[in-house]
Amino acid sequence: MKRLLLVLLALAMWAVPAFASPRLELAARNGRVTVYAEAGLEDTARELADSAEATLTRISGDLISLPKPKQIEVRLVRHARDLAGVAPAGRGAPAWAIGVAYPDLGVISVAMRRGAQLVEPAATLRHELAHVALGAALGDRAPHWLHEGFAYQHSAEWSWQRAETLAGMAWFGSVIPLEQLDGSFPREELPAHRAYAESYDFVGFLSRRGRWEDKSDDGDRWPFRRFLTEIGRGSDPDAAARTAFGRTLQQLFDEWKLDLGARYMMMPVGLFGLALWILAAILLVLAFLRRRGQNRRRIAQWDLEESARRERQSAVVQPPPYVPWPGEDPLDEDPEDRPPAGPRLPN
């Protein structure tokens, strides 16, 4: 029994390094951003550090006169499964995440891959930097949907799967009510897709809307920026919406639902029209190929007919060439058949 326990203990000690957190070392520093990375990721760490400051400057354009993050620590790992291991003590990370931000601590964790899927760490970092910047500006007053939508605005990570999710929500009327949206971000990946997609699209709508309902009045993002500023100054999101947009948050949400329906309910019509164009193009190509095949067969038939005609001509017996007889030509006219010569005139 004692020997068995020793064997199990040895196996456990051997297995521990496989699950231990990766060792991170200082790899790059630029301005407010410091990057710690696993060995071998130094080049990527330097690229992230060099681009992070410019990203923070762009993000701050939406957070005018609000506090900015002073220092940001980025932790770069190879595999997403290690994100929880490098997270701040007691915080952890979702099992399906490729990047996690801890705005209250100014810490960001970024993975290079998730399973067999390679990801672009620069895009992930832009998303998480927006979380940290918004957290520094608004504190804990920003709802979850605003955090996610704002981060999407500054990462431009378009997803076909997200577009499908939004289309399904528009077609089947499965939009999550605004008052339930913040509680719709479970730790499981698939149920959270609808909440993320809705947050991204709603905040994008707010950033484009302008002060008035007129779609041509984009306001140069001014109303959206004022909306964030009002929250940063202590207003609740609904009061901030009335100040910046002249509408309550629920009224803006209802406008967004109409906009969502207008965009995605017409998608089947657009896809049907596109399908007709594609079908017409395919038919034209098939007609062209058919006509070209007919022309080739016709030319081949003409070639066969020409070859047959030449063969028939070559089969006809040709007489030998005429050769004059030596001396008197036997084919010449008989002298008796010649007409008599006329009288000769005297000289």
Rank of each mutant, 00 (worst) to 15 (best):
R32A: 02
A84R: 14
R113C: 01
S60P: 00
V323R: 13
W171H: 06
R78A: 10
F202I: 07
V77E: 13
G173Q: 09
F224R: 03
E213T: 07
H144M: 14
V323Y: 10
Q71P: 00
P268Y: 12
Q250S: 11
D214L: 15
R298M: 04
A240T: 05
G234F: 14
P346E: 14
F224Y: 14
S159Y: 09
D332G: 05
P320W: 13
G92L: 12
A156E: 14
E188S: 09
G135Y: 09
A20Y: 08
P321V: 14
R81T: 05
S51L: 06
L83V: 03
T55D: 11
G99L: 13
G135A: 05
V203F: 10
A170N: 06
L258G: 06
G232I: 08
M112W: 09
P177S: 10
L289M: 04
Y200G: 05
M266A: 10
A142H: 03
D217Q: 13
R263Y: 07
R312S: 02
A18Y: 12
M1N: 02
G90L: 11
G135W: 14
A15N: 06
E230G: 07
A18K: 06
P69M: 14
L56N: 01
F150Q: 06
D334C: 02
Q313Y: 07
G210M: 04
M267Q: 09
